[in-house]
Design a protein around this nucleic acid. Structure first.
Lengths: 334, 334
DNA sequence: ATTCTTCGTCGAAGCGCTTCGCTAAAGTCT
DNA sequence: AGACTTTAGCGAAGCGCTTCGACGAAGAAT
């Protein structure tokens, strides 16, 4: 690999001249510029970003920090839109796992490699936030904590989403509603939207004088089946379900069908996840249009602005309220 | 941020002594070791990986290189398993996009930042392979080219998968079969499995004296619907479809249903993609069990072995032949 | 007692780049 | 013509680390 000093020698100029021709931070004569470019061409020069980063303290890498080894269903969909936004702005995306039980790792790893961080699966009380603050690393959240003072985040307004859903179901004549939430593990970790969805669910139920039950559900077809069966045992009069995780959907439908019920005539289903997922089932699921792409893009954009712009802008806090799209899985109670 | 020289000063030892205590590459007295650790503690020292990498020429970062901005359906599922394997071995994963029409980007970006590369959506003739070779960057493929001499790859044996599928359908009495392939764009780019699936399809059709039609299909419900309708126009006697992309599945089922046909009584469906996706539809799709996790893990492992081990092991070439799982979407022709 | 080995430590070079301060040469102004 | 600015380019310092060679002080061997 040719280095700058190779170029300098070959072009017959000083090392710094080469650097300045590349960066354009000082005027360079046309003549020198030509010689430098030619030398670069001949030697197949490629700048070493590591060396540059060591000096400039900027790597143009941002990290996507998620707590477990495997991303939970929804979170995966953020990745590409974040990566796209990052790439567009000349940043690369580093996937960074920190098992939430061992934050030590976060300390040691990648010091200096990362310009900023996007936090996923944010918990109500998230130790990572404190750590990041302490380390003085710029970061934004996709999701939010309980106390969000001074934090930049983009999140879906789950309270609103659940309320909208319950309103809609109530208006369709449903009085006994089940909530099928994310996994037990995520609830235990107090991941923001999981807790919020649950709370909002019971608040809305109570507010309208309805009757509701909820359950966590793992990310598999079978779990969906079992969860529905269990909920029906708790309340045989259930006529509607709200789904927060896509993978169990098939099992949910199977269980309802096994119960001798039809969707949407007897039982209504409303999903709060990616529309692409909602359209895979038969019948297609009515759903709150979870704007993964927009959220990912916004999160990345907010971070990049922090990195590029003047440090002290106010923390941007964005709460999206996507509409409900009615598909084939819901309707008036027969 | 405290640096090594801060530690050295505080501990009253030489800079190099600090370095050696950390790396253990030379013996250090217990006494010195203690002083160093204490100083590190007091100053909250964290090593700067950038500086280290500049010297050692290793960043412990591997890149996942994909050709477009957005990952196509299947590819997404590799990401987490690769990330997991990488993390386990102390590597981080960088998401790296190179629009296939502009490989220049690959040259300039991230020189020095990347120890090795995993290539996704490999085309039969893939310019990126040449480039990577030229740059002397270690890499492995998930997928494969036409000529794979000297390449390390892990791929699903699509020829075998398609043959197995056609065999099964034929044995079930189906004689007119449709193939619903990935998008036109991917076929045009000659992405390996897209081309191979198509070729293998017609080879198997011909071999058994069946009749077959194929079509590309974009990644949406609507596209699935339209594709099926189009294929039925080409051959009204179709009684089975092979699916290579999950998102259109809902639309495929809807179209079949609109035609007044039932699955599986009238029409059989077999998928070649992730079982999780196959279980979302109703009825759940029979499918070749695409081993995303295993492939991702193997791909990452192969690369890491290259990076860690002796340079010159033979290129590992792994071709997986997963079995067909029959679910509810297929059966004997009525 | 003298030489030969280890052992623990130190200083300095160097990875490939950016950037600062300086200096000639050339251009501008009275 | 002299003083003053501007322009283009040079050399050197330094980013934070690894690693090499050297060197006293012990301990082992003769």
């Amino acid at each position: 690999m040719a280095t700058m000093s190779d170029i300098a020698r070959r072009a017959g100029v000083a090392l710094s001249t080469v650097s300045y021709t590349l960066s354009g931070k000082r005027p360079i004569s046309e003549e020198a510029r030509q010689k430098v470019y030619q030398a670069m061409e001949e030697l197949g020069y490629q700048p070493n970003f590591l060396a540059r980063a060591l000096v400039t303290k900027r790597t143009k890498i941002i990290a996507l920090l998620y707590p477990s080894y495997t991303l939970s269903s929804g979170q995966q969909e953020f990745v590409t839109s974040i990566a796209e936004m990052a790439t567009t702005h000349g940043y690369a995306l580093l996937l960074w796992t920190s098992p939430s039980e061992n934050l030590e790792v976060m300390n040691m790893t990648h010091q200096g490699f990362i310009d900023g961080v996007i936090l996923m699966e944010v918990a109500l009380h998230d130790a990572r936030v404190d750590l990041l603050r302490e380390q003085n690393l710029p970061f934004t959240l996709i999701g939010r904590c309980e106390n969000n003072e001074g934090l930049s985040f983009v999140d879906l307004d789950f309270d609103n989403a659940v309320e909208t859903t319950i309103d809609y179901l109530r208006a369709s004549g449903h009085t006994h509603i089940g909530l099928i939430n994310q996994s037990e593990a995520m609830l235990k970790r107090e991941v923001g939207y999981v807790v919020r969805a649950r709370t909002a669910f019971y608040r809305a139920i109570q507010h309208h004088g309805l009757s509701g039950v909820d359950s966590c559900c793992d990310e598999s077809e079978q779990a969906g089946y079992e969860t529905v069966m269990r909920l029906f045992e708790q309340d045989p009069e259930l006529s509607a379900f709200v789904l927060l995780t896509p993978w169990p959907s098939g099992g949910v439908l199977r269980a309802i069908s096994d119960k001798g019920l039809r969707v949407p005539e007897d039982t209504s289903l409303v999903a709060i996840f990616s529309p692409r997922m909602a359209e895979m089932t038969t019948p297609a699921l009515s759903s709150i249009e979870f704007p993964f792409n927009e959220m990912g893009r916004l999160g990345a954009q907010m971070l990049i602005q922090k990195l590029e712009g003047k440090e002290e802008e106010k923390a941007a806090q964005i709460l999206l309220k996507p509409p409900l799209t009615v598909r084939r899985s819901s309707g008036p109670r027969a």
